[in-house]
Write a protein that binds this DNA or RNA. Structure first.
Lengths: 337, 337
DNA sequence: CTGTTAGCGCCTTCAA
DNA sequence: TTGAAGGCGCTAACAG
């Protein structure tokens, strides 16, 4: 418990006066840096505690030429509205918060609406953060490439592209798509559809991987259904699709949320999952196993992804080199297929 | 497109040299404050744009005695791990990000592990943010009360308590619980259970409201089942509960996520929802209508909540008065009941 | 071991 | 309309 005295202590100058020492002594005592008499240090630390004083981080950072914060940006290039509510992004955000906190960084959250080609450089030049993590490259890979060429501490969660100059961490989406295809084939499904927005590079890769693992006859008949990642939009897309008379026996959804929307729509049409229709999702969000039926899905290791994003970023911040990482997805078979 | 010249422009001092004016002139030009010749202003603004220069926000804020950021804290007093992945909190976070951005504030996200009684004051004294929004009072109402007594820009999302000194925005949880009870009664349910962690004040209020709207005979038989807010924990709690032989005909879950866990567990026991068992949740997260069967739930208006939190905070920041707000929940009847 | 001094990049009075 | 100077709160040489 801190008992607050009459005289407000707002700066190390105030504290120095009370302690009868110079500001630099107070600074040294409170930062535990630099040589200082042990007793002096403890005396000042106790005084600070008694007065409830803490060093002003903003000023400290200005002096040190850093901000102590890392930005996490969610570009909404193609999806408006509830993008941020996607459970996958949310879980990612939670883990990022943990990882960054562990390394002493604040997490500055920002939803950006990419306009023109200067939004990222402009954000960076404002000097609010020491580094930037972008969740999902959206349709902004040109912007990312340009910025990455002159700004090191930048890491992107998303699909790896050999042509991209920027640093990415992500799942091997092609492999994930192939996993889904192989599984549906093993279930005897041949009349297939893919639900997702393929203008998002990650989803496009899932789709390509899906196609690539299919025999020619099945591949040629795959139907591509455009669906945004919100539950509502996915549900609507599936409802329209079924209403138009389509009756596939296997659906690969670009995300778990989309898969749940598809299943909800199928239930309304009395299509039984998995008897008549196998559905497989992507992500393995926590709710996937609670869905009814529990969702078969391609799992991404979010926690590991977050840890890697932060690690690579810190390497770059320390001036070290870092390379893109892509890890293997894993098929989780439950009851929707 | 900005073409970057040879000489790096890192501060208004650099720009002032290039422009052949003083730093104060550059400052005035770039902040659009203070009197300045129109042409001079435009000339300097163009020069800045050409060199890709933006004012350093950190330094600007230090000088102005503010930080330009608002902290959103998620105290994890009782729930570890995946708390942050609760879709309700996530949606709230998204809306808060929007609202704050609109008013020119950055959003500093922080998960805190409340230890002792000084965590909040200590955070505030670090001076990283201009104000604090806390999502969920957890079990920290004593700490909040103490801090609120001397720190104005503090708003909490959560249950309103007449005894609490701090500013809250939240749903009338008692009323929500009553809504759930009345609905289950109308469905002819009499053998009832509540799933949730009643050491969380919000959930306790939902439980109290639930009980209060029940006739004595039904109320006395209500079973209270402890369940954390993660899908997995809720599922496990329900599985154990059913395995112990309990067969209620109506369950009120403290959150939608918990309700989904309950439904998943019930499905495994071949208990049919809603034929044999009515389940009702709380929140109305986007996925609630995609659940199978679509979830009956007590809706909270998250967007409005976020808008109010930010509005009240800004009032306090401006030195104006602000009072706690509690709004009415709404019953959304779908097919799980 | 401790104090003095000079800024980090910016804004704002006060003068001119 | 513009410039000079002081300082926001802090750290890090450089002295002593």
């Amino acid at each position: 418990m801190t008992d607050h005295h009459d005289d407000p202590v707002r700066s190390i100058t105030d504290l120095a006066k009370i302690a009868g020492v110079s500001v630099s002594t107070v600074s040294r005592a409170l930062t535990s840096k630099g040589a200082l008499n042990k007793d002096t240090r403890r005396r000042i630390q106790e005084l600070a505690a008694r007065h409830g004083f803490r060093i002003n981080v903003a000023a400290q950072n200005l002096r040190l030429g850093r901000t102590g914060a890392v930005a996490v940006l969610l570009p909404l290039g193609h999806e408006r509205g509830q993008h941020l509510s996607d459970p996958f992004f949310m879980a990612m955000l939670g883990f990022l918060a943990d990882e960054l906190a562990e390394r002493g960084y604040d997490l500055l959250l920002s939803r950006v609406l990419p306009d023109g080609e200067d939004w990222l450089d402009s954000f960076i030049r404002a000097g609010r953060t020491d580094g930037v993590i972008i969740i999902g490259q959206s349709n902004q890979s040109a912007v990312l490439d340009r910025t990455a060429s002159h700004y090191q501490p930048l890491v992107i969660w998303g699909a790896y592209g050999a042509r991209n100059q920027y640093l990415t961490v992500g799942t091997d989406n092609m492999a994930g798509g192939a996993l889904a295809a192989t599984h549906l084939l093993a279930r005897g499904r041949r009349s297939l559809a893919f639900f997702g927005n393929v203008s998002v590079p990650e989803f496009a890769a899932r789709y390509q991987g899906f196609l690539s693992a299919l025999p020619a006859d099945a591949r040629d008949r795959v139907e591509l259904v455009h669906a945004h990642v919100t539950p509502e939009a996915s549900y609507r897309a599936a409802t329209d699709y079924f209403a138009a008379g389509h009756r596939p026996d296997g659906i690969f959804a670009a995300s778990d949320v989309t898969a749940m929307g598809v299943i909800a729509a199928a239930a309304e049409q009395d299509m039984r999952v998995p008897e008549q229709l196998s559905v497989i999702g992507f992500d393995d969000v926590p709710l996937a196993q609670m869905s009814n039926p529990p969702l078969t899905t391609v799992r991404q290791d979010i926690r590991r992804g977050a840890a890697l994003l932060v690690e690579l970023l810190c390497r770059r911040l320390a001036g070290e080199t870092a390379q893109s990482v892509q890890f293997a997805p894993e098929l989780v078979i439950r009851e929707s297929s």
